[in-house]
């Protein structure tokens, strides 16, 4: 890897102080190449959400630094940093302001960053909607009139509106039905290829990870346990915890049963 696009170097994050001090993340170093999809995997309390918030600049790290394209991101992000890193959240119900039309939510992104000429922004909003597979007329609709999958597409369009090269996807499909999930995952995959986007894909769902990520980082209790290319991690996980995660995934085919059984026994996956 030449210069990593996103580089997390020795990051630690502590909440509270004194006796109530909680170390949410400790000694984490990670690199993500441009155009790569890195899956961040872990259960509740693993620190994966803290990592997302640190990358987004919701709060600064207690120690260590986060570099984007070779430059350190400051604790107080400037507007161009906001524009460069966007978020797609888990819950499509709350991610859009219920009192505002879909189009107005997308306009906000264009207005804040003064993207394109003012007069052309409504047309731009329609193009964004079409790019995520929704009809342009949806701009006039209220979020309440959209299904969960459609709202998630709008949230993705909003992230695209800023032309951000890096997206943090925080469980983007775990609240969706399985057929809708497949559509949205494909959309995310297509967009990454077409636009050359870089993803930090936060999830607890290993079967999704297996099919969308290039590399995986496994977290447990605020520590990075292991990282590796996705195929390698599923073939021969180094850590017992990673093995237990894979062995716990509910599966639907006999081939998957066999893989799980091999991994649970600690052997190589054929």
């Amino acid at each position: 890897m030449a210069t990593p696009f996103l580089s997390i170097e020795g990051v630690r994050r502590v909440f509270g102080s004194g006796a109530g001090e909680v170390v949410a993340l400790d000694g984490v170093s990670l690199q993500v190449a441009r155009g790569e999809c890195l899956a961040v995997v872990g259960e509740s309390g693993s620190g994966k959400t803290t990592l997302a918030n640190l990358i987004l600049g919701i709060y600064p790290p207690s120690a260590g630094r986060i570099m984007l394209d070779g430059a350190e991101l400051p604790a107080r992000r400037r507007i161009e940093h906001r524009r460069a890193i966007q978020l797609v959240q888990q819950n499509p119900l709350s991610a859009l302001n219920p009192r505002r039309s879909v189009g107005a939510s997308l306009r906000l992104a264009l207005d804040v960053h003064a993207i394109g000429p003012r007069a052309g922004r409504d047309a731009h909003v329609r193009r964004l909607l079409e790019e995520v597979g929704l009809p342009g007329e949806f701009a006039r609709r209220a979020p309440a009139a959209l299904s969960g999958g459609q709202r998630q597409r709008v949230a993705i369009a909003r992230a695209l509106a800023c032309e951000a090269p890096l997206l943090v996807l925080d469980e983007p499909t775990s609240a969706l039905d399985v057929l809708v999930q497949a559509r949205v995952l494909r959309l995310l995959d297509d967009l990454r290829r077409q636009r050359g986007l870089t993803y930090v894909f936060i999830t607890h769902d290993l079967s999704v990870v297996r099919n969308v990520a290039d590399r995986v980082a496994v977290f447990e209790r605020g520590r990075l346990l292991e990282t590796g290319p996705v195929a390698q991690l599923f073939a021969a996980p180094a850590h017992a915890y990673t093995r237990s995660l894979i062995a716990a995934v509910p599966v639907v085919t006999p081939e998957e049963d066999a893989l799980r059984a091999r991994i649970a026994q600690g052997g190589p996956a054929s």
Partner: peptide, 12 residues
Amino acid sequence: AVPRITGGGIPD
């Protein structure tokens, strides 16, 4: 539509 842990990508 269920993603497989044996891989194979996301079907269309």
